[in-house]
Design a protein around this nucleic acid. Sequence first.
DNA 1: CTACGGATTGGTAACGTTCCCATGGACGTC
DNA 2: GACGTCCATGGGAACGTTACCAATCCGTAG
Lengths: 339, 339
Amino acid sequence: MRRLVKRPTMKDVARAAGVSPMTVSRAVSGEPGVSPDTAARVEQAVRQLGYQRNDNARSLRQKNLRTSTIGLVVDDLANPFYALMARSVEDEAHRRGFLVLVGSTNDEPRREREVIAAFTARQVDGLILVPTNGGHGFLKRQMDGGTCVVCVDRPAKGLAVDTVTVDNRAGAERAVSHLLGHGHTRIAYLGDRFDIWTQRERHAGYLAALASHGIPEDPALVRHELRSQSHAAAALAELRALSAPPTALFTTNDLITIGVMDGLGQPDPVALVGFDDFPLADRLSPPLSVVSQDPVALGATAANLLFSRIDGDRSAPRSVVLLTRLIVRGSGAGGGRPR
Amino acid sequence: MRRLVKRPTMKDVARAAGVSPMTVSRAVSGEPGVSPDTAARVEQAVRQLGYQRNDNARSLRQKNLRTSTIGLVVDDLANPFYALMARSVEDEAHRRGFLVLVGSTNDEPRREREVIAAFTARQVDGLILVPTNGGHGFLKRQMDGGTCVVCVDRPAKGLAVDTVTVDNRAGAERAVSHLLGHGHTRIAYLGDRFDIWTQRERHAGYLAALASHGIPEDPALVRHELRSQSHAAAALAELRALSAPPTALFTTNDLITIGVMDGLGQPDPVALVGFDDFPLADRLSPPLSVVSQDPVALGATAANLLFSRIDGDRSAPRSVVLLTRLIVRGSGAGGGRPR
DNA sequence: CTACGGATTGGTAACGTTCCCATGGACGTC
DNA sequence: GACGTCCATGGGAACGTTACCAATCCGTAG
C-alpha cells in the first residue's frame, strides 16, 4: 500500500530551484524571458520533484480562457460508425494538443442535455454533436458563453451552427434506382425511427426514386421504427407473408440490413441494397450491395470546422455535405433472375 | 453573428438574488443550511442569468480533490472491441456522475505517455488503461499523487494495479484442441505483434494444445507480426505454398481472421478457428467457429474496480480473469472432410 | 559619470469556487 | 430575564496558476 503524497506545486518547484513561482510558470510553459541557466535549474527541480502542471488551475486563470478540451456527443459510441468517427475526431484533437470528452445519448434528449451540461460545466472549448431530435435552445446560451458547436451526421433543428452530413437522400435514391434498374417494382422500405433526420431523408430518397420511375408508393411495403435486428427480421417475415410480397428490399442502416439477412435464404430471389457498408459485406452470399458513407471523413471534417471556430472564425455557419457511394456487389439484382 | 457574453459567476447570481456568494454556492450544490425561501430566490436568479457552475474552479478549491473525470486509454478506439469497452465504461461512469476522457495509443509507448500525461495534468481521478508494451514507471508517481489506475485487456509489466483480462491462454488452447479433435495435426498459427501480451498468451495456448496431444511444434507453421488483413492474406498464401501445407488455421484476432478468409475458397478444405467473435461470423460459408470474449464485461468490470478505488478502497491489487467461450459453428472441421 | 534600453526576475492580485470560522437571530430552558 | 443551542448567513482566505507591473542588473551611449 502506497502512501498518498500531496502533488508538488509551482511553489514547491520554486523553493527547490531557488526562484519565484512566476519564473517557474514561465519556464514550465516555455515562455520567453527566462535565462537558459535558470531554465535548467527549474527543469532539474521539476524532474526531481516529479512536478506536473495543473492544467485545470491554469485554464482557470488564463485570460484567453482555454481548456484545450472538446466534447464529442454521439448517439452510441459502441456503434462502429460512431467509433470510427470518434477516433477520427480524437486524432484531429491530438494533433492540436486537445483532449476529447465523449458521451453517448442513446438518442434521448434528456441524456443529451445532461451530457452537454456536464461538458460545458467543465468549460470545454467546443462540442461536436450528433444531435437528438429534441430542442437545442439551451445550446444558444452556451454558445454566447463562447462554446463552439458543430453538428455532424444530422442537423440540429433550429440551431444555426456548422453542420456536416452526407447526401442521405441522393444516396437512398441511387440505391432504390439501382433496384428499379434491375426490373424490381415492388421494393420494400425497412427503416429505423422516423424521428431521426437521416431516416426521414433516406425515406424521401426512396420515394423520389419510385416517383421518377412512375411507380406508385405502396404503404404496405414501408416499415419504420425497426430498432433492432430482430425487429427487422420480424418485419421481413411479415412482408414475405403479403399476398403481393416485395421482390426487393431497401434497408436504411447496417443493423437492419444484418437483421434482414438472417431472414433471407442463401441465395434468395429477393434483392437487397442497404445503407452503410460494413466489414465482410463482400463475403456474404450474395455479396451485399450497399450505400457507403465515410465516418472518418465526417469526423475529420467536423473537427476541422470546430477548430477553426475555436481559433476565432466568426463567419456565417457552413453546411458541408459529403458524398455517399453506391457499391454494387451483386445483391441488388436478386438471386432469382440473371444479372 | 452572436456577441460573446461573459459567463455569469456565483457573484453575479449572488447580486441578483440579494445574498452572498457563499449562500449561492450552498444552494447550487444542494448543501444543507439554506432556507427554502432563499434557495428559491437563488434558483430563480440562476435561471434568469443562465448560470452554470464552473466545475473546474470547483474541483480546484475542494478539499477532497475530485474532478469526477476518468481517463480511458485504449489501443485504438476505432476497433469495435475497444469501442464496446469504451461504451461500457462510459455507462458506468455516467451512472456515477463521472465524465470520460478518451485517448488512443496505437500501441505506441510514446503516445501512451503523452495521453496519460495530458489526462493527469487535468487531474483525472482515475485511469482505465490498455497498456502498451513500454515501461510504466512514470505511473507510480501519478498513483502516489492519488490517481487510481486499472489495467484492462492486458497487464502492465511491473505495475501493481488491478487488472482485468480474459483467459487468453485457455481460450487459445481450447480452440486448437477443437481443431486437433477433428483430426488436424498440421495447424498453423497466424498472430499479431508478439510484443503484445495477449498474443504471447494465445501463442502459449496454441503450443500447450499441441503438446498435450503429443504433436511437435513446426516453426514453419507459425507466423507473427501480422498487422493487417493483407499481411494475413499474404501469410496464408505462403503457408499454402509449403510442401506440407497446414490443414487447419488458428488466427489470433478478428483482423487476421478476416484477412485469412479472403484467401480461402467457399468452401475450402482448410479448417479455421479465430480469436474474437464479430457480427455475421455465422453468415459466412462455412460459418466461422471462434473464441469469443466479452468487451462489455471487461469494461464494466474495470470501471467497477476503478470506482471502488476512487471511493477509497486501499486493499491489495486484484486480478480478475474473465472467461472466453468457444463458439462452434462449423469452420473448425474443415470443408474437405465430413463433420 | 549619468542616463537609458533591454533582458531577467519577483511581488501582488485575480480567476471562480469552497473551507473555516464568526455572526446574528429565534427558540427553548432554567 | 439570562443563557445555551441551533440554524441561516456572511466574511476572509485559499486552491494553483498566470496577468500585470515594478524592480533589478548589465552594458553601452552620450
